[in-house]
Simulated scan of single mutants.
Amino acid sequence: MLNKVQLIGFTGADSEIRTTPSGKKVAVVRVATSRYTKKGGERQDYTTWHQVEIWSPHTVKWLEGRPLAKGSKVYVEGEIRNERYTDKDGQDHYFTKVTVAGPGHELKSLDRPEANPEEPD
Protein backbone atom coordinates (compact mmCIF):
# COMPACT_ATOMS: atom_id res chain seq x y z
CA MET A 1 0.00 0.00 0.00
CA LEU A 2 1.12 3.56 -0.60
CA ASN A 3 0.24 6.62 1.46
CA LYS A 4 2.24 9.53 0.10
CA VAL A 5 1.60 13.23 -0.35
CA GLN A 6 3.78 15.95 -1.88
CA LEU A 7 3.03 19.63 -1.35
CA ILE A 8 4.61 22.88 -2.44
CA GLY A 9 3.19 25.88 -0.67
CA PHE A 10 3.73 28.75 1.72
CA THR A 11 3.83 28.65 5.51
CA GLY A 12 0.96 30.44 7.22
CA ALA A 13 2.80 31.10 10.49
CA ASP A 14 6.25 30.64 11.98
CA SER A 15 7.16 26.99 12.53
CA GLU A 16 6.68 25.88 16.10
CA ILE A 17 8.31 23.16 18.21
CA ARG A 18 6.32 21.27 20.83
CA THR A 19 7.38 18.64 23.34
CA THR A 20 5.12 15.65 24.00
CA PRO A 21 4.46 14.47 27.58
CA SER A 22 7.00 11.68 26.94
CA GLY A 23 9.66 14.27 26.04
CA LYS A 24 9.74 13.76 22.26
CA LYS A 25 9.91 16.90 20.13
CA VAL A 26 7.60 17.56 17.18
CA ALA A 27 7.55 20.53 14.80
CA VAL A 28 4.28 21.90 13.48
CA VAL A 29 3.96 23.93 10.29
CA ARG A 30 0.80 25.19 8.58
CA VAL A 31 1.14 25.18 4.80
CA ALA A 32 -1.17 26.79 2.24
CA THR A 33 -1.50 25.45 -1.26
CA SER A 34 -3.70 26.99 -3.91
CA ARG A 35 -5.31 26.39 -7.25
CA TYR A 36 -7.37 28.59 -9.48
CA THR A 37 -10.05 28.44 -12.13
CA LYS A 38 -11.23 30.95 -14.68
CA LYS A 39 -14.93 31.47 -15.04
CA GLY A 40 -16.23 34.09 -17.40
CA GLY A 41 -12.71 35.44 -17.83
CA GLU A 42 -12.36 36.07 -14.09
CA ARG A 43 -9.79 34.26 -11.98
CA GLN A 44 -11.07 32.50 -8.85
CA ASP A 45 -8.44 31.35 -6.30
CA TYR A 46 -8.96 28.45 -3.89
CA THR A 47 -6.61 27.99 -0.94
CA THR A 48 -6.28 24.77 1.05
CA TRP A 49 -4.57 24.73 4.46
CA HIS A 50 -2.55 21.72 5.60
CA GLN A 51 -1.33 20.97 9.11
CA VAL A 52 2.10 19.36 8.85
CA GLU A 53 3.68 17.51 11.80
CA ILE A 54 7.38 16.77 11.57
CA TRP A 55 8.61 13.92 13.76
CA SER A 56 11.95 13.28 12.02
CA PRO A 57 14.52 14.19 14.73
CA HIS A 58 17.08 15.72 12.33
CA THR A 59 14.43 17.97 10.71
CA VAL A 60 13.04 19.04 14.10
CA LYS A 61 16.57 19.91 15.23
CA TRP A 62 17.11 21.90 12.02
CA LEU A 63 13.87 23.84 12.63
CA GLU A 64 14.92 24.58 16.21
CA GLY A 65 18.05 26.29 14.92
CA ARG A 66 16.51 27.87 11.81
CA PRO A 67 12.74 28.31 12.20
CA LEU A 68 10.73 28.78 9.03
CA ALA A 69 9.08 32.20 9.04
CA LYS A 70 5.53 32.91 7.92
CA GLY A 71 5.43 33.11 4.13
CA SER A 72 8.33 30.70 3.53
CA LYS A 73 8.01 28.57 0.40
CA VAL A 74 8.38 24.88 1.28
CA TYR A 75 8.33 21.40 -0.19
CA VAL A 76 6.74 18.70 1.99
CA GLU A 77 6.74 14.97 1.40
CA GLY A 78 4.99 12.75 3.91
CA GLU A 79 1.86 10.74 4.54
CA ILE A 80 -1.76 11.63 5.17
CA ARG A 81 -3.22 10.79 8.56
CA ASN A 82 -6.81 11.17 9.68
CA GLU A 83 -7.31 11.98 13.35
CA ARG A 84 -10.28 12.24 15.67
CA TYR A 85 -10.80 13.85 19.03
CA THR A 86 -13.77 14.34 21.34
CA ASP A 87 -14.33 17.82 22.78
CA LYS A 88 -15.53 18.64 26.30
CA ASP A 89 -19.16 18.51 25.08
CA GLY A 90 -18.76 14.96 23.78
CA GLN A 91 -18.73 15.98 20.11
CA ASP A 92 -16.38 14.08 17.81
CA HIS A 93 -14.18 16.16 15.51
CA TYR A 94 -12.21 14.82 12.56
CA PHE A 95 -9.24 16.37 10.80
CA THR A 96 -6.52 15.44 8.35
CA LYS A 97 -2.83 16.19 8.69
CA VAL A 98 0.38 15.48 6.83
CA THR A 99 3.02 13.64 8.85
CA VAL A 100 6.74 13.76 8.09
CA ALA A 101 8.17 10.85 10.08
CA GLY A 102 9.45 7.98 8.01
CA PRO A 103 12.07 7.15 5.42
CA GLY A 104 11.67 9.26 2.31
CA HIS A 105 9.67 11.91 4.13
CA GLU A 106 11.07 15.43 4.15
CA LEU A 107 10.52 19.13 4.62
CA LYS A 108 12.68 21.49 2.59
CA SER A 109 12.88 25.25 2.26
CA LEU A 110 12.56 26.37 -1.35
CA ASP A 111 13.52 29.94 -0.37
CA ARG A 112 16.89 28.94 1.05
CA PRO A 113 17.82 25.49 -0.33
CA GLU A 114 21.45 25.89 0.76
CA ALA A 115 20.30 25.78 4.39
CA ASN A 116 18.15 22.61 4.18
CA PRO A 117 18.76 19.81 6.68
CA GLU A 118 21.25 17.21 5.61
CA GLU A 119 20.21 13.59 5.45
CA PRO A 120 21.09 11.66 8.61
CA ASP A 121 23.91 9.14 8.42
Rank of each mutant, 00 (worst) to 15 (best):
G65Q: 09
T37D: 11
A101W: 13
S34C: 00
D111I: 00
N82H: 05
R112F: 07
K73P: 01
Y85K: 14
Q6Y: 06
P103F: 13
D92A: 12
K70A: 02
T47H: 05
K4C: 13
G23D: 03
G23A: 12
Y36H: 15
E16D: 10
T59Q: 11
G71I: 02
A27E: 08
E64L: 04
E83H: 13
K24N: 14
K70D: 02
T59P: 00
V29M: 00
A115V: 07
R18K: 13
G12F: 05
V5K: 02
D14K: 10
K24I: 14
K97I: 07
I8N: 00
Q91D: 11
G12E: 03
V31Q: 00
A69I: 04
E16W: 04
I80W: 04
P21C: 06
T37P: 06
V5A: 04
F95T: 12
R35L: 03
R30I: 02
E118I: 04
A115G: 03
V52G: 03
H50D: 05
I8V: 13
R81V: 07
P120K: 08
Y36L: 02
R43M: 11
E114N: 11
E119H: 10
T11P: 01
E83T: 14
G102W: 12
Q91Y: 09
K38F: 11
V52K: 06
W62A: 04
D121H: 13
A115N: 10
S22F: 12
T48P: 02
K61A: 14
E77M: 14
G102Y: 15
S34I: 01
V52H: 04
R35Y: 01
A27I: 06
S15D: 03
F95Y: 15
S15M: 05
F95M: 10
K73H: 07
L68M: 05
L110V: 00
E106S: 12
G41I: 04
S34E: 06
K97G: 01
G41P: 12
A69F: 05
W62H: 08
A27P: 10
G23S: 10
K4Q: 15
E42W: 01
Q51E: 14
K24H: 15
P120F: 11
T48Y: 05
S56A: 15
A27C: 13
E119Q: 11
E79P: 03
H105G: 10
V5L: 10
F10R: 03
V74T: 01
R30D: 09
V74K: 00
V74I: 02
T20V: 04
A27Y: 06
E77C: 15
V26P: 00
T86R: 12
L7A: 02
R112P: 01
P21K: 09
D87A: 08
P120T: 07
Y94N: 10
V52P: 02
P120I: 07
D45N: 09
A101E: 11
D121L: 14
D45F: 09
K97M: 07
W49E: 03
N82P: 03
S109H: 00
G23Q: 05
V74Y: 01
R84V: 14
K38H: 12
T48S: 11
T20N: 02
E83W: 10
A27M: 03
R30L: 03
A69E: 08
D87M: 08
E16N: 11
D87Y: 08
G104Y: 02
G40L: 08
V29P: 00
A69Y: 02
